[in-house]
Lab assay of single mutants.
Amino acid sequence: DTINITLPDGKTLTLTVTPEFTVKELAEEIARRLGLSPEDIKDTHNGKTLDPSLTLAEYGITPGSTITLEIK
């Protein structure tokens, strides 16, 4: 299953994830792909900052969802 990550420059990154991924694991994968530190990444969905300890499923993030990435 894939989700879309909207980057600060407007580009989109597509990642393969499972509903059990935590937001922290997602940030780590994004950081790895972009050459950043996971601590520099802030993920938001529907205007809410995502708690790193919760899973994508707990936020109702499903395949095809879009998450907005902010760099701290």
Rank of each mutant, 00 (worst) to 15 (best):
T14L: 10
D1A: 15
R32M: 08
G47K: 06
L15F: 04
A57Q: 10
S53R: 11
I41T: 03
T18S: 07
V17K: 00
R33F: 13
H45Y: 13
T2N: 07
G47E: 06
L56E: 00
T55W: 01
T12G: 06
A31S: 08
P8Y: 05
P52I: 08
V17S: 01
T68V: 14
E29V: 11
F21T: 15
T68F: 14
T12K: 10
I67V: 09
A31N: 04
N4P: 01
T18L: 06
L54D: 04
I67Q: 01
K72N: 14
L50G: 04
I61R: 00
T2K: 10
I67L: 08
N46L: 12
Y59D: 02
T44F: 14
T16C: 09
I41V: 08
E70K: 06
G10K: 05
E70H: 12
F21M: 15
K11S: 12
I61W: 10
T68P: 04
K72I: 14
T44V: 13
L50D: 03
I5P: 04
L56A: 00
P38Q: 06
I41A: 03
L50S: 03
G60Q: 03
I61Q: 01
K42I: 15
L26C: 03
I71E: 05
A57T: 09
E39S: 14
I41Q: 02
E25K: 08
G10R: 03
I30M: 05
L34Q: 02
D40T: 12
I67D: 00
I41L: 13
E58M: 03
L13I: 13
L69C: 11
D1P: 10
T68N: 12
I3A: 01
L7Q: 03
A27P: 00
P63G: 08
F21R: 04
R32Q: 08
K11P: 07
I5C: 04
D40V: 12
L69G: 00
K11Q: 11
S65C: 14
E28N: 08
Y59A: 15
T14D: 03
L36Y: 09
T2E: 07
T49D: 08
L7K: 02
G64Q: 02
P19E: 05
T16W: 10
I3M: 02
T49R: 11
L34Y: 04
T66H: 06
I30T: 01
T12V: 11
T6Y: 12
P8D: 06
I30E: 00
D1G: 14
I71F: 12
T44S: 13
T6G: 07
T16Y: 12
T62I: 12
E58H: 09
G35L: 04
E58Y: 09
I30G: 00
I41C: 13
S53Q: 11
L26S: 00
I3P: 04
G47M: 11
E58N: 04
T14P: 04
S37N: 13
K24A: 10
I41H: 03
L13A: 04
I5Q: 07
K11E: 11
T6V: 15
R32W: 06
E29M: 08
K48N: 10
I41D: 01
G35R: 04
D43M: 15
R32P: 01
T12R: 09
G60Y: 02
L34C: 09
D43F: 15
T22Y: 01
T2A: 08
R33Q: 10
T68S: 12
S37Q: 12
T66I: 07
E39K: 14
S37A: 11
I61E: 01
I30A: 02
R33I: 13
V17Q: 00
T2G: 05
I67C: 09
K72T: 13
N4Q: 09
V17F: 12
H45M: 13
T2W: 14
G10W: 02
G64L: 02
I30P: 00
I71L: 11
D43P: 15
K11N: 12
A27T: 13
R33H: 13
T22V: 01
A27L: 15
L50N: 02
N4C: 07
G60T: 01
G64Y: 01
E39L: 15
R32A: 08
L34V: 07
I5M: 03
V23S: 01
S65R: 02
L69F: 03
H45N: 10
K42M: 15
E28H: 09
T6R: 15
L56T: 01
P19I: 04
E20R: 07
L7T: 08
G60C: 07
G64T: 02
T6A: 14
G47L: 14
R32V: 06
E29W: 12
G60F: 03
T22S: 04
A27G: 10
I30F: 03
K11F: 13
K48D: 08
T66V: 08
D40N: 10
A27F: 15
L26G: 00
T62F: 14
I5Y: 00
P8Q: 10
E25F: 04
G64P: 01
G60N: 04
L54S: 11
A27H: 15
I41S: 02
E58D: 15
T22P: 01
K42T: 13
T68C: 15
N4D: 08
E70L: 08
S37G: 08
R32C: 10
I71G: 06
L36D: 02
E39V: 15
D51T: 05
D9E: 05
T44N: 09
V17I: 13
T16A: 13
L50V: 08
A31E: 04
K24H: 07
S65L: 05
E20W: 07
P63S: 10
D51A: 04
L69N: 00
L7V: 04
S53K: 11
A31W: 07
T12L: 10
A31Q: 06
G47V: 06
L54R: 14
A57F: 12
E70D: 10
P19Q: 05
E20T: 13
I41P: 02
N46K: 09
R32F: 07
Y59S: 14
G64V: 01
P38I: 15
F21G: 04
K11L: 13
T62V: 13
L69W: 03
L26E: 00
P63N: 09
L13W: 08
I71W: 09
L36H: 08
L56Q: 00
G47Y: 04
L15Q: 02
R33Y: 12
G10T: 03
I61N: 01
S65V: 10
P63E: 07
I41N: 02
T66Y: 04
Y59L: 15
H45G: 09
T16E: 12
L34G: 01
N46D: 09
P19L: 07
T22F: 01
T12W: 08
L26N: 00
E29S: 06
I61G: 01
G35A: 05
T55Q: 02
D43V: 15
T16F: 11
L15H: 01
T66L: 04
F21L: 12
L26K: 00
L7Y: 05
T2L: 07
L36M: 12
N46Y: 09
P52G: 14
T14V: 14
E39R: 14
D51E: 06
L54K: 15
L56H: 00
T49A: 11
L26D: 00
K72L: 14
T18N: 07
I71T: 07
T44L: 14
I30Y: 01
G60H: 03
S53I: 04
D1H: 11
P8I: 08
D9W: 12
K42G: 13
L26V: 04
K11A: 10
A57Y: 13
E20H: 10
L15Y: 01
G60L: 03
T44A: 13
L50F: 09
D43K: 15
D43Q: 15
V23M: 11
T22A: 01
I61H: 01
P38E: 08
I67T: 01
T55I: 03
E28L: 09
E58F: 06
Y59I: 15
L34P: 00
E70G: 08
P63D: 12
L15M: 09
D40H: 13
G35W: 03
L50T: 03
T22G: 02
H45R: 13
K72A: 13
G60S: 02
D51R: 04
T6N: 14
L34E: 02
D51W: 05
L7S: 03
I30V: 11
E29C: 07
E28Y: 08
E20A: 11
D43W: 15
D1M: 15
L26Y: 02
D1V: 15
G10C: 10
L56W: 01
K42R: 13
T68D: 07
T6L: 15
I30S: 00
P52A: 13
L7C: 09
L13F: 12
I5S: 05
I61A: 02
E58R: 01
T68H: 14
F21Y: 14
D51Y: 04
F21V: 08
G10S: 03
A57W: 09
A31T: 06
R33V: 11
P52Q: 14
L36A: 07
R32N: 09
T66Q: 04
L7I: 05
T44H: 13
E20I: 08
T62G: 12
P38S: 09
G10V: 01
D40M: 13
L69T: 03
T44Y: 12
L69Q: 00
P8E: 06
P52S: 15
E70I: 11
L7G: 03
S37K: 12
V17A: 02
T68I: 14
I61S: 01
T16D: 10
G10Q: 03
A57G: 09
K48P: 05
P63H: 08
P19S: 05
T14A: 08
T55D: 01
L26A: 03
K72E: 12
Y59F: 10
D40K: 10
D40F: 14
T16M: 11
L13N: 01
L15A: 02
K24N: 05
L54F: 08
S65Y: 05
P8W: 07
I71P: 06
T18R: 07
T2F: 13
V17P: 01
L7M: 11
K48C: 12
L13H: 06
T14K: 10
L34H: 02
K42D: 07
G64I: 01
A27K: 14
E29I: 08
K48G: 09
T16L: 11
P63T: 09
T66C: 13
L69A: 05
T2R: 08
T49I: 12
L26R: 00
K24Y: 08
P63K: 03
R33E: 08
L13C: 07
D9L: 05
T16R: 08
P19G: 02
V17E: 00
Y59K: 03
D40G: 09
